[in-house]
């Protein structure tokens, strides 16, 4: 039998079907969200505070269970899986690294996740070494992670997720508190992971990051997905973004203002705008 061709070699790794979730306090945080994540995708989930972004992310690795609906992980229904089992497929880097670091050395810290997965010791070491290498932590591998500066602590916490080698990475506001250089380095590493075929779900407020990195934007408002499109499409509807308490990056806003002069509305980076303005009127 000839196997069915997979388009672009991508296949579904995570699927949330009509997920609704109500907190004990009675807040309806998700009111029916359907989202498919394919391998190799780079999705930005954006929305104002309280729009349900983090609640959605916590459904992706089983920290929260849907009140209604279904979460399918790697083709299987997740309702019988524990968060520990789901963590093999979906890695979640928390916003605050101080909520997870506890070991005596960076090496131990990064080995904690794969160790919990019950892998043999040499495999744990191989993965930890790989993750430490990728995150540029070789020089501090013997140091206590809690005594490192914030930028490095954040990297250790991300290395500890990379070492688990999941198919999907969820990053919750990964650049908070980092300076421009640290943030750029981190985003480059995330891009590299994405290039290796990992799906990336980036939860953020920072529209600049979204414009520069994501291929797909999911806009959330009041527990619903109000827009799910490629990044260009998302930034061309400035009114919808505004209703969702979001502002596109300044360069896109400028392009919108210049649209009467014939500038395209879907500019995402300064380079594109420069190109657009200098290309001449040869048409």
């Amino acid at each position: 039998m000839i196997p069915l061709p997979e388009h672009d070699g991508n296949h579904q790794v995570l699927f949330l079907r009509n997920v609704k979730f109500t907190y004990e306090s009675g807040v309806d945080a998700l009111k029916g969200v359907t989202l498919e994540v394919d391998s190799g995708e780079y999705i930005a989930v954006v929305g104002g505070n309280g729009s349900g972004k983090t609640t959605l992310a916590k459904h992706m690795n089983g920290l929260l269970r849907p009140s209604v609906g279904q979460v399918v992980v790697s083709g299987g229904d997740s309702s019988t899986m524990t968060p520990a089992q789901m963590a093999r497929v979906v890695g979640y880097a928390f916003q605050n690294p101080d909520h997870q670091l506890f070991c005596g050395t960076v090496q131990e810290e990064v080995s904690f996740g794969p160790g919990n997965m019950g892998l043999p010791a040499d495999e744990v070491k191989r993965r930890a070494d790989g993750a430490i290498e990728v995150m540029g932590l070789s020089e501090v591998r013997g140091k206590p992670p809690l005594s490192l500066p914030l930028g490095l602590r954040r990297r250790v916490s991300i290395a500890s997720v990379i070492a688990m080698d999941p198919k999907v990475f969820v990053f919750d506001e990964p650049t908070t508190g980092l300076d421009a250089n640290e943030a750029d380095e981190l985003m480059a590493i995330i891009r590299k992971l994405n290039g290796e075929g990992k799906a990336v779900v980036l939860i953020t407020h920072e529209m600049k990051l979204v414009a520069e990195h994501a291929n797909r934007v999911v806009v959330m408002a009041e527990g619903r997905i109000v827009l799910d499109s490629d990044t260009r499409g998302a930034f061309s509807d400035i009114e919808l973004l505004r209703r969702s308490k979001l502002l596109p990056p300044p360069v896109t806003q400028l392009a919108h203002k210049l649209s009467q002069m014939g500038v395209s509305r879907d500019i995402l980076t300064p380079q594109e705008l420069v190109f657009e303005l200098t290309r001449g009127d040869d048409d």
Partner: peptide, 13 residues
């Protein structure tokens, strides 16, 4: 609660 979630996400049971 947040710490427990973070460690569960690292496959801790």
């Amino acid at each position: 609660e947040s710490i427990k979630d973070a460690q569960r996400a690292r496959a801790l049971e």
